[in-house]
Design a protein around this nucleic acid. Structure first.
Lengths: 203, 203
DNA sequence: ACATCCACCTGGGTC
DNA sequence: CGACCCAGGTGGATG
């Protein structure tokens, strides 16, 4: 059963020359591509946020509201952005904020729902387009399996003491989290190369 | 090395029939028990707050001030409650608030000091009483070690494949979190029965 | 620098 | 299965 370590390399985002999309849209306007990002394990994991590369954020997205003082004592900071789904009719609303602690632009509230509904996994690509004032979002699956490959330590999965740590643990206690094609095992994020792996793991 | 499974069952809080405490107090009035809670790891951890089960909060505690408008534009919401220490002469003041986002009642400011001073650990019980208008707080250690006992699967800790899944894994990767008497191992929350266990685990 | 506090957020479990 | 709790989180403000 082959797994692969989640790659952590950079350059997962790229800008697309501002040309036309494949066809004109119902609005009759030209849909301009803005940017894409190959999502990281964190982007699709428990952090429930998408980090927008700073240069894209500052080039294409409105400056998120940050001021809390004055007339905005309550209420979360940030801006809500609405994106049309390129392939459907849904509208995705994400809170868009600047996190000064990490100096980064992030989509927060609403993002995890998109990840779940689209079954986004690390390595997939999310792309953002614009058609005049309208914003669009789309995503696609990764093309190739990850580079690094390891074997799941089968013994570890089967250590009998682990199995009766708790009844609900059973044979899957070591699998702490499984979402999409990602799997957390012994504190290490893994990506599945193929679906049948799930069966091997007795999930 | 004996560990014990952290119980995951509900009913960690319980109401005590509104009878007398063991003896009359200095005030001469009858001390009425209100409710107890077996504190969770979060209640004694870094979140610095105690979640008060909603049904108890609404039955026994005053409605925390939530209105922010008017003369209180920016300050924190909530009410300060003062509790007499059943065993001592101290008075514990906690900010008591309602968090609308999570629909929950919480003790915040001041709570972490109580946890530290009393050395509260997950599984201990904190109890709240009332004597007329006076509020009292007390706590006690968990009585028994948890029912289920297991040996830490030593093999599992040493499975060599696990060790070089990632360099930072080493011998302790399987211990994902350790705080106080709580430990997370293989996705299972464990509570330590004794301190020396930490050494055995090579933490 | 650091711990604490504050309001907001979400997933899992339960009813 | 929808609604609701609540345990476990977050970034940011504060002192």
């Amino acid at each position: 059963m082959a797994l692969a370590l989640a790659p952590e390399s950079r350059s997962h985002d790229r800008e697309v020359a501002g040309g036309l999309a494949e066809g004109n849209q119902s609005g009759g306007q030209r849909r301009e591509r803005m940017f894409e990002k190959v999502v990281t394990p964190s982007d699709v994991g428990k952090l429930n946020r998408l980090v927008v590369p700073k240069h894209f954020a500052e080039k294409y997205l409105p400056l998120p509201q940050a001021a809390r003082g004055g007339g905005n004592p309550a209420g979360p900071v940030g801006t809500v952005l609405s994106f049309h789904d390129t392939r459907g009719h849904a509208t995705w609303r994400f809170r868009y904020s600047y996190w000064s602690s990490s100096q980064s632009y992030v989509m927060t509230k609403g993002w995890s729902r998109y990840v779940r509904d689209k079954r986004l996994a690390a390595g997939d690509t999310v792309s953002f387009c614009r058609d005049g004032p309208r914003l669009f979002i789309d995503c696609r699956r990764r093309r190739t399996p990850p580079d690094v490959r390891v074997l799941v330590p089968r013994q570890a999965c089967l250590v009998p003491q682990v199995q009766h740590l708790a009844p609900r643990v059973g044979g899957v206690a070591v699998v702490e989290e499984a979402r999409g094609r990602c799997l957390r095992l012994f504190g290490v994020n893994l990506e599945l190369r193929a679906e049948p792996v799930l069966l091997d793991l007795q999930l």
